[in-house]
């Protein structure tokens, strides 16, 4: 088996070839230095896609909703990329990625590209390769990129800083409380969805959520945009158009108010810090059994304090990567 050259992959991505997009994402997942130039070229090539994050607890109906939403967006002719992230098992390092089960109908449409990913131990509910994968889909000409992530708590919602528009999904029948309130992820929502509204207990979820928002809970900084609550039923295909419209008008409102630009800067800020963390972790792993040993020993014997040791580590990493 011959290895595909990076430049052929990049060319394939720009031409929108499925195999090339797919393989480029695989390379991004491996996060090796060999792909760095290719990913840089892709990053610089295009910043046009509207990135929509969809989050909520497991079972809240995200994947089903994404499938319906995607069908609706496709009617406008726009191309849709979907990245579905599921947690990696902490025990084996493997994962079962089952979001596609709900998205079967989308396969075969050339304007839709679906990729499943495992978190692989990355904090924040995103996989490390999620952001590069967004870039790749963007460069390949996808107009909207939807990221589905499991959001169970505040620490799990990096999606907010990866997406222009964040949709938080709540559902009836998953316990007494609204899961998003319990998880403290209410305030990250640009749009609230109460899914499964074909169920009779959905009204209760809707009114609870609206009450929370009415008393000012879950509102973030002042904004030209006010989060709304949209009731959907993927089963009855209701509310999906409303959601698609809200997603579009969110961008419009942010652009008009100038918040779009500041949001993009926040996203870039997060990207910078995350990427720096990734580099540090990679270097640490690479030298764990080698150079770093001496430093670790010193720290264990209290010959050096943690702060000083960490500074030394950063210095060494700096020397290493600036070669």
């Amino acid at each position: 088996m011959s290895v595909v050259a990076s430049k052929d992959l990049v060319k394939g991505v720009f031409e929108g070839r499925i195999w090339a997009i797919a393989r480029m994402i695989t390379r991004a997942e491996a996060s090796d230095r060999a792909s760095e130039d290719a990913l840089a070229e892709i990053y610089k090539s295009s910043r046009n896609a509207h990135v929509v994050g969809i989050t909520g607890v497991p079972g809240s109906g995200k994947s089903t909703l994404v499938a319906e939403l995607c069908k609706t967006i496709r009617k406008s002719g726009r191309k849709v990329g979907i990245i579905a992230v599921d947690p990696t098992s902490p025990f084996s390092g493997g994962a079962i990625l089952g979001d596609r089960i709900r998205m079967g109908e989308l396969v075969g449409d050339e304007g839709v590209f679906i990729r499943s990913m495992a978190t692989r131990g990355a904090l924040g509910g995103l996989s490390r390769a999620t952001l590069p994968a967004i870039d790749i889909l963007d460069a390949a000409g996808f107009d909207i990129v939807i990221i589905e992530t499991v959001g169970v708590g505040q620490d799990e919602v990096d999606v907010v800083r990866a997406a222009h528009t964040t949709v938080v999904v709540s559902a009836p029948g998953l316990g007494d409380d609204i899961q998003a309130i319990k998880a403290g992820i209410l305030e990250i929502a640009d749009i609230h969805v109460v899914s499964k509204c074909d169920r009779s207990d959905a009204n209760k979820t809707i009114s609870e959520l609206k009450n929370m928002l009415a008393i000012g809970l879950g509102l973030s900084a002042p904004s030209a945009w006010t989060p709304s609550v949209i009731a959907t039923s993927a089963a009855k295909k209701e509310g999906i158009d409303t959601l698609a419209e809200a997603i579009d008008s969110h961008v419009k409102v942010l652009k008009e108010s100038g918040e779009w630009q500041s949001r993009r800067l926040t996203m870039a800020e997060m990207r910078l810090l995350k990427t720096a963390e990734d580099i540090l972790r990679d270097e640490f792993e690479r030298h764990r059994a080698g150079k770093i040993q001496a430093l670790v020993k010193k720290l264990a014997n209290a010959e050096i304090a943690p702060q000083g040791a960490a500074r030394k580590l950063l210095e060494d990493v700096w020397k290493e990567i600036s070669l």
Binding site: S89, G93, A95, G104, S116, A118
Partner: peptide, 17 residues
């Protein structure tokens, strides 16, 4: 599940494809 426990990422597409 066995493949996941062996450290693999398993994508399952569902029935009737």
């Amino acid at each position: 599940r066995a493949l996941r426990d062996a450290g693999m990422d398993v994508i399952y597409t569902g029935l009737h494809r």
